[in-house]
Design a protein around this nucleic acid. Sequence first.
RNA 1: GGCGCCAUCGUCUAAGGGUUAGGACGGAGCCCUCUCAAGGCUCUAAUAGGGGUUCGAAUCCCCUUGGCGCUACCA
Length: 479
Amino acid sequence: MVRVRFAPSPTGYLHIGSARTFIFNWLFARRQKGAMILRIDDTDVERNTQASLDSIFNGLNWLDLGWDEFYQQSDRLELYRVKAWEIFARGYAYRDFTPMNAAPEERSSEAGAWLCNPEMRALSAEESERRAAAGEPFVLRFRVPRETERRVEFEDLVYGAQSKACDDIEDFALLRSNGAPTYHHASCVDDADLRISHVVRGQDHLSNTFKHILIFEALGVDSPLFAHLPLLIAPDGAKLSKRKHGPVVSVMTYKDAGFLPHSYVNFLCLLGWSPKDDREKMTRQELIEVFSFEGVNRSNAVVNFSEEDPIDPKALWLNSQAIYALPVEELAAHLAPVVAAAGFEIAPEKLLKITPLIQERIKTLNDVLTVADFFFVAELADYDTGELTPQKGDAAMALRVLERARVALESAEFTHDGLDSVLRAEATALGVKAGQMFQPIRVAVCGRKVAPPLFETLEVLGRETCLVRIDQAVRKLRN
RNA sequence: GGCGCCAUCGUCUAAGGGUUAGGACGGAGCCCUCUCAAGGCUCUAAUAGGGGUUCGAAUCCCCUUGGCGCUACCA
């Protein structure tokens, strides 16, 4: 039985890299008909906040994928304590009484990396017990095997054969001096206790895996299988950080920008993974069917954003495609809350009629506000009168067109075909080109040159509104 | 510094000894057209460098360079 977990620590918002890790775990679980477990790694009480936990849930909920089991490490502290002392009892760990901030400088710089404090590692059982009983603070450290020239080895499902000499692994902590478990310890104990079959996580944990394998050994259990994922990085090559790169790193930014959850999931999947054919737009079901670790890349993927384009153009394109593919009713339902949040009151039936006119013109849900605004307002915002002037024409032509249109529209049948034939006939009668006829009308009713197709727009706007707006345009031209 | 990992168009990627190095996004152009889109077509642009192995390397090996990660009583 495949069991995978996503284990964020609540020290910030949901990062897009974390979201992608969640998605790959989820895809693998669904693909293998296994279980997806959400585990909150909150062993560092100092840094965890409720706000952060809420924001992670918000992000995960928006992704709309779900999970099967939920755990929180702060509920399981006793388990980590018990397991740590079991490890100690088996001789795989020792008490280190070195004071907290003792000589941290000596650790790096020089030739060999810092491995352990030999004095503490060699402390006799008696002295260790005595000092602990006397209340002297200590951290419980893993005793990495050094007597043999052993190497820790494993086969990563993405990166292949991995190997590291024990002499390059330091004696890491299991329990802090306050008794709380470290990430390494709690994570492994939980992975063992929850019977996690595959650990799928960021490549930043690749080197940590050697330590984890030693912990699993000390715990007396088989290691899970590992699959590390390439990291998401910024165009400057640095890893994505809120401080340096701003809101682009947060999942909620994309929700707020008007992304459809699935299209964003689709986008994230394409970063560091490929179905190996030319498919890019994929449904959730397709993603599940085709996902595998063989398709995962080994090099980091750049999220392509800049000051001018804060959102990766590929994400935008995928979203516009997803919007285009949506049934009109569904798109209208997605649009309604956006329109309402902007303060417009619009009847659902009307929005349903507007939707097909803008469907292929919006890249995000939020674009409805800039593309269809003139449908929502009672009064058009002021616009430059010069806009009314058609190509290769003048203000006089605009006036003639609008006056003529005004009369024609009073009696025209307000349907696409009706308006089409009436307005084209008027153009011919006036001796102007169709475009010269349509443009002044478009600007009069929309307030700008760029807008959805004219006849449908007039139809949805309705005769009354159209006549009022044309009158206003005529007045502007006469002034 | 030590250890580990990585390296194909600007970006995401395909090609795992033999291809004019393919696709997508972006950009440019053309077509379509009532504007804008959408759609169609064309163009743009890559195997980091150097050595090997081989009849033949983007592909295998080594070195260099560059990038990333770990090196906490953070996760």
